[in-house]
């Protein structure tokens, strides 16, 4: 089986499993899994993962590296993660630009970092260490944030750019998170996307959000809205046809409904693929 990651993927979630295995969408080319859901776990979960690995290439997306955390990562976790990544043959491993553990307490959520020079240095060190420990390229993901952390000295795009360039890592660009942050903090999403290190994007995340009186919340429990689809198309024109992942974590619709969303994402990816082919052909002609 070709294990390369291209086209549209789906975040593997337990409630989707039965439909995924019995009625796989033709446009679905790969899966993204959270290693923490399978590491140190026996029984039904690893057995199911084996079935999925036989049918789809897999890329891993973690929750617990706490790249902005001040506490040293759990060595046992890193060791187990390294073994797991090797076993599933992921081409890269991604985690979030956030912290999730402090004072020995695990929040099990993505807590925001200050966009400061000191934090850039800290995160860069952690990414390099993680890359060494895990033996695969690391991609970092921009998170949705509901506050601007005191002590921030730059925009999120500047922060992400500096981290990615100095750590020489890749970027998992979450388009919906940029949209959510733009809505909540009053900036232009396209300007923010344009300032991201788009040449480092190895994967895109797409998801739905919810509008509440408190603002836009990145719930992964709604359909992707038209504005975010428009941002995706705009981004793909600049990144080329990078793999796109659909995240759906709650309020699951019918499998047919989800299939239509996958098909829509696939159409965006196909457009970007065609555009890239035309560009390549033009470049080839002009070189004669």
């Amino acid at each position: 089986m070709n294990r390369s990651i291209a086209g549209v993927g789906l975040g593997l979630r337990w409630p989707l499993l039965e439909d995924l295995l019995e009625h796989p969408s033709a446009e679905l080319a790969w899966l993204e899994i959270a290693p923490e859901n399978y590491m140190r776990r026996g029984g039904r979960f690893p057995a199911t993962l084996e079935t999925c690995l036989e049918r789809w290439p897999v890329v891993t997306h973690g929750l617990s590296l706490s790249l902005g955390g001040t506490e040293a990562p759990d060595r046992s976790y890193l060791h187990t993660l390294r073994d797991f990544l090797q076993r599933v043959q992921t081409p890269w491993h991604s985690d979030h630009l956030c912290f999730s553990i402090a004072s020995g307490t695990a929040a099990h959520d993505l807590l925001p970092l200050p966009f400061s020079k000191a934090m850039v240095t800290q995160v860069v060190d952690r990414i390099r260490s993680a890359q060494d420990a895990l033996g695969v390229p690391i991609a970092v993901e921009n998170i949705s944030a509901y506050v601007i952390v005191p002590g921030s000295e730059m925009t999120e795009s500047e922060f992400v750019t500096e981290v990615v360039q100095r750590a020489e890592c890749q970027l998992l660009l979450d388009v919906n998170n940029v949209f959510v942050n733009a809505q909540n903090h009053g900036f232009d999403a396209k300007t923010a996307l344009a300032a991201m290190p788009l040449d480092r994007v190895v994967q895109l995340h797409m998801a739905g959000h919810e509008r509440t009186p408190e603002g836009c919340i990145d719930t992964h429990a709604e359909d992707i809205c038209d504005d975010v689809f428009a941002l995706l198309a705009w981004t793909l024109q600049r990144t080329g046809p990078v793999p796109i992942l659909l995240e759906r974590d709650d309020n699951f619709p019918s499998w047919e409904h989800l299939g239509r969303e996958i098909a829509k994402l696939h159409a965006c990816w196909s457009d970007a693929t065609r555009a890239a082919s035309v560009e390549n052909a033009s470049a080839l002609r002009s070189s004669f």
Binding site: T70, A102, S103, T105, A107, M119, Q122, P150, G151
Partner: peptide, 15 residues
Amino acid sequence: MQASYQQVLVRVCFA
């Protein structure tokens, strides 16, 4: 400074 901020946020979450 970072450690202090992170400890404060975790305290806010769990207190």
